[in-house]
């Protein structure tokens, strides 16, 4: 692999990793509080991309407004999913919520097929022209979109860390991750904090979905499946429940995917397999993930 190709791969790996990280955070935050794997999370990403698409094509909004509206819409969707599907099951056995999560995922996909249609739509018309330009960096040809995606991702991750570690609601989110009843005793409304957590994770997933759609410029009702699954693996890899773990796991997974194919082009067809190999290895040798601690027993 030449230096320029390596540089190209490096940027692609970082961008893909960043996307996994953005999506993984929603899984890890919800799991940290409810011990629930929100299978519908990948589909929020898909709805986010469609919202951005229709914002521009149907409502003729400028792309940046449409993107912001779509991210807010994703947040609202996440909040709604919790209220409608999971909140009524808080006192039920965990398996009920898990099955409901799978059902919610099927519902969102079917809903998208019916309302948006099953035929993939090109996202190229949504992506502003300047992002499609190519610049040459040390001989490597890199799309402006790559820098834009990376910068946006890093900014969003920083914003998330700020919310979680520097704000009052973030403090409450960290508190309920270890002790729900005691957080309630502090006068905090548990359902609102959980709802906020869903909204926050879903906003990031929506943003991730839009960037994903810009990079692989088409959208379809099942587009959330693979990135959702990979991001989930990234969350497990990083140590599910840990936000920094999800970020690290996302970047490592994305980078590995790109680099392995970069170094061994003959393996390109197996690209999607790596993530699952990692999942199996981590479950075998370090089920708590690289940054995960043993989960405290919930009372």
């Amino acid at each position: 692999m030449s230096g320029t190709i390596f540089l190209q791969n490096l940027f692609n790996g970082l961008t893909l990793g960043g996307l996994y990280a953005l999506i993984a955070i929603g899984y890890t935050m919800v799991y940290g509080i409810l011990r629930l794997i929100n299978f519908a999370h990948g589909d929020v990403l898909m709805i986010g991309a469609y919202l951005a698409f229709y914002g521009v094509t149907l409502m003729s909004m400028p792309w940046y407004i449409s993107v912001v509206v779509a991210i807010l819409g994703s947040a609202g969707l996440g909040f709604l999913i919790d209220r409608v599907a999971y909140k009524p099951l808080r006192e039920s056995p965990r398996i009920s919520a898990l099955i409901t999560a799978i059902g919610m995922s099927f519902f969102l996909e079917s809903f998208a097929v019916v309302v948006f249609g099953g035929i993939p739509k090109s996202f190229l018309s949504i992506t502003p022209r300047f992002l499609k330009k190519v610049v040459v960096v040390f001989g490597a040809r890199i799309q402006v979109l790559t820098f834009f995606a990376l910068a946006t991702t890093v900014a969003l991750l920083a914003l998330l860390l700020w919310i979680v570690y520097k704000t009052k609601i973030g403090m409450a989110m960290r508190a309920i991750a270890t002790d729900i009843p005691t957080t309630a005793l502090m006068g905090a409304n548990i359902d609102n904090i959980i709802g906020f957590t869903f909204a926050l994770g879903s906003a990031l997933a929506g943003a991730g979905g839009i960037i994903w759609a810009m990079r692989y410029p088409q959208i379809n009702p099942y587009m959330g499946f693979m990135p959702g699954l990979k991001a989930f693996i990234a969350a497990v890899f990083g140590g599910i429940g840990s936000i920094q773990g999800a970020m690290l796991g996302g970047f490592i997974l994305g980078m590995m995917e790109i680099m392995i194919v970069g170094f061994f082009p003959q393996l390109a067809g197996y690209r999607d397999v790596f993530a699952f190999v990692i999942l199996i290895l981590i479950l075998m040798f370090k089920p708590t993930g690289i940054m995960g601690k043993k989960l405290t027993v919930k009372v």
């Binding site: 009052k168 403090m171 409450a172 508190a175 957080t183 502090m186 006068g187 905090a188």
Partner: peptide, 8 residues
């Protein structure tokens, strides 16, 4: 922890 006490 103290600020959680003053949450409301």
């Amino acid at each position: 922890n103290l600020m959680m006490g003053a949450y409301t």
